[in-house]
């Protein structure tokens, strides 16, 4: 009890008797509030919806929970997770993202095992665990795709971790994506031989 009273007394004397404390405290508290102005700096086109690692919560909850410690990026054996800079705005700073064209996710679920705050929910690298992943959905641009132009390709189908379920082949190996099975790992986008890619993965997780 005496410790508590001593603490209160100290707090009171610090807060009330010292205008210097209050002044510097206010200056210190106001300064970080200018940091979001960094967003006003001129930047290129901004993609607000990133592809997140597997097991991520809904976008807003994910950004709330993620502290940007980088453990997911650190254990990723595929090096497909990178940490955002300012390209996603200040709210996405230091959060993990996956750039599917550069490297898709191999669904090893190592990142979901290590997340300290639960921003990535724990998943196992089993067929059930993989089926529970919902990072996004692949979409084919039929006017760009080789197979839809009659030149048999089928590279995306061969890259797909769930062939026959998430993606089936038509005539000339034309890819058909089935949204209910597609987990959005981005391996098809990484593998696409057309430049720019004819198949893209879009994040379709709910916002909140």
């Amino acid at each position: 009890m005496s410790i508590f009273a001593e603490f209160l007394e100290k707090l009171r004397s610090t807060l009330i008797n010292r205008s210097a404390f209050l002044r510097t405290f206010l200056i210190g508290a106001v300064l970080p509030c200018f940091l979001p102005l960094l967003e006003r700096l001129p930047q290129g086109a901004r993609l607000r919806r990133f592809l997140r690692p597997p097991g991520a919560l809904a976008e807003k909850k994910f950004v709330d929970a993620c502290i940007g410690c980088g453990q997911c990026a650190n254990v990723c054996p595929n090096k497909c997770i990178s940490l955002c800079g300012l390209e996603g705005g200040i709210e996405n700073l230091a959060t993990p993202k996956i750039s599917a064209r550069a490297k898709g996710c191999i669904l090893c679920m190592a990142c979901t095992q290590v997340c300290p705050t639960g921003a990535l929910q724990k998943l196992e690298p089993t067929p059930e665990g993989i089926a529970a992943v919902k990072m996004g959905t692949a979409m084919v641009s039929e006017d760009v795709c080789y197979s839809f132009a009659g030149r048999t390709c089928g590279v995306c189908y061969r890259a797909c971790p769930l062939p026959g379920k998430a993606m089936t082949l038509g005539i000339f190996e034309q890819p058909h994506v089935h949204e209910e099975y597609c987990v959005g790992c981005g391996l098809c986008e990484q593998a696409c031989i057309h430049m720019p890619q004819a198949i893209r993965v879009f994040s379709n997780r709910s916002i909140s």
């Binding site: 010292r18 210097a20 404390f21 209050l22 002044r23 510097t24 405290f25 206010l26 200056i27 210190g28 508290a29 106001v30 300064l31 970080p32 509030c33 940091l35 979001p36």
Partner: peptide, 16 residues
């Protein structure tokens, strides 16, 4: 400067 500044940075940082 007064050390209240870093308390302020702490409070402001949590606020932001």
């Amino acid at each position: 400067i007064h050390r209240g500044f870093s308390w302020g940075v702490l409070a402001g940082g949590i606020g932001v």
